[in-house]
Simulated scan of single mutants.
Amino acid sequence: MSDKQQTPYEEMSYYGLSLLSYLHDSHPELAADRSFIAERADRAAEAYSDAIRAGSSHTEAEAAASEELYRRLHFSPYNTLVHILWDEFASAIPEEAARAVA
């Protein structure tokens, strides 16, 4: 196993922690994939640096980094299921239990 797969949370980059938080909420099936997180975080940091070197503002560079970090992760089947449980099965499944059921 590579070092990136064994990296504790404390050693993750800003982008890695941001992605991990998003994955826990929206794509829990990917939250344990340390190599995926590390690769995305590295690409996001590189996109930010490239944008700054090209003369972009911090806001523009951050947008470029976010685009790379969250590429193809905007739709969450997990969140869709949670919302269906909240909306359609509220009487059978309490809202606080919907995430565990999903």
Rank of each mutant, 00 (worst) to 15 (best):
L23W: 01
S49H: 08
Q5K: 09
E11M: 06
D50V: 09
R71S: 13
V82N: 08
E96R: 06
S18A: 12
S21L: 10
N79S: 12
S2I: 08
S13P: 02
A65K: 04
S57M: 13
Y48V: 00
A51M: 05
E88H: 09
P8S: 07
E46H: 11
G55T: 07
V101A: 07
A31E: 04
A54M: 06
E29L: 10
E60A: 14
A47E: 02
S13W: 05
N79R: 15
I52C: 05
H74N: 11
G55Y: 02
R40Q: 14
G16S: 06
A63D: 13
K4Q: 02
P77Q: 07
Q6F: 00
A65T: 03
I93F: 07
H83R: 14
L23K: 03
A92R: 15
A97W: 07
A41P: 03
E68M: 11
T80S: 14
E46M: 12
Y70I: 07
S66A: 15
P94L: 08
R34V: 00
H24M: 11
T59Q: 15
A65H: 01
Y14M: 05
Q5D: 10
E67A: 15
L30W: 03
A90N: 12
W86H: 12
H74L: 14
A38H: 02
L20T: 08
S66V: 05
P28N: 08
A63K: 11
A90W: 12
A102P: 00
S35G: 00
H27Q: 11
S26W: 03
T7A: 01
A54I: 10
F89S: 09
R72V: 10
H27K: 07
R34L: 05
I52A: 07
